[in-house]
């Protein structure tokens, strides 16, 4: 589904990713871990198409297409979803309006007619229930005045609405208490199918107790320096990142 080859990315002349390789197939959950400032969020942003990054080398092949030239909205319509580390507040745009516009843009891209108001409301209720989000959230402006936990739940709700093929969750666990973490993880697990894939970016092992990955990768200094199964996360939890640093500097 996703193949990243020798990706080198810089921002304002500073190189962040230095030849990153990653392959994700459908049905898989990948966890990307690593210390702060090693390029985890850059990787997520570049896959989603955030402007401001310079691709110095390499390619990102998604469903057989190089997506680097695609605008972010087309990547989204192609099924890529980014769960933001810091979801943006958009005062004045209601969640309902926002999601409805997004859903219908996705439908238009697939050549489908817009969803009727009734169908849409039904879908919204259904997905809210799935991710255990309160109804009052949807009547408010996008993320405006939401608590940290509400914002993250809202990301998962949007993911449930848009049903992506590839979801990238950037530090979804940051700032969450254990109850909110469980709700968020539950939502992600319920949305897992054999057809879609998830990349979970996290700093701590904690989230991986609830979202169990098939693969764990360690990102350090702009490269994936170690890959393994879910056990690798436990090793990292126990030993920290220092031994990886030592190992990779050898």
């Amino acid at each position: 589904m996703l193949k990243i080859k020798d990706l080198q990315v810089s921002i304002n002349g500073k190189t962040i990713l230095r030849g990153l390789n990653l392959e994700v197939n459908k049905g898989e959950v990948h966890a990307i871990m690593g210390p702060n400032g090693t390029g985890k969020s850059t990787l997520a942003n570049v896959i989603a198409g955030k402007p401001g990054y310079h691709i110095d080398k390499g390619e990102i092949i998604y469903k057989g297409k190089n997506i680097l030239e695609m605008p972010p909205e087309v990547r989204a319509q192609e099924g890529i979803f980014l769960g933001f580390q810091y979801p943006v507040e958009i005062p004045g745009v209601s969640m309902t309006n926002f999601m409805r516009t997004a859903i219908n843009e996705h439908r238009k891209y697939k050549g489908l007619d817009p969803m009727s108001a009734g169908e849409f409301l039904k879908l919204m209720k259904e997905k809210q229930k799935l991710v255990e989000i309160q109804a009052k959230l949807t009547n408010r402006s996008v993320n405006e005045g939401f608590s940290g936990g509400e914002k993250k739940k809202n990301e998962i709700f949007q993911m449930a609405m848009l049903e992506p093929n590839l979801a990238i969750l950037d530090e979804t666990d940051s700032g969450l208490d254990i109850d909110a973490l469980k709700i968020v993880a539950n939502g992600v697990n319920k949305l897992r199918t054999k057809e879609n894939a998830t990349i979970v970016i996290t700093h701590y092992q904690r989230l991986l107790d609830y979202i169990v990955p098939d693969f764990v990768h360690v990102l350090f200094d702009g490269k994936i320096v170690k890959s393994g199964g879910k056990e690798l996360a436990l090793v990292l939890e126990e030993k920290g990142y220092e031994w990886i640093k030592d190992e990779s500097s050898k």
């Binding site: 198409g49 605008p71 972010p72 909205e73 989204a76 933001f84 999601m99 843009e105 848009l162």
Partner: peptide, 14 residues
């Protein structure tokens, strides 16, 4: 710009 990208990342055009 952050809000623009957020909206676009949900599939809504520029």
């Amino acid at each position: 710009e952050e809000a623009l990208f957020y909206i676009k990342s949900r599939g809504i055009g520029e």
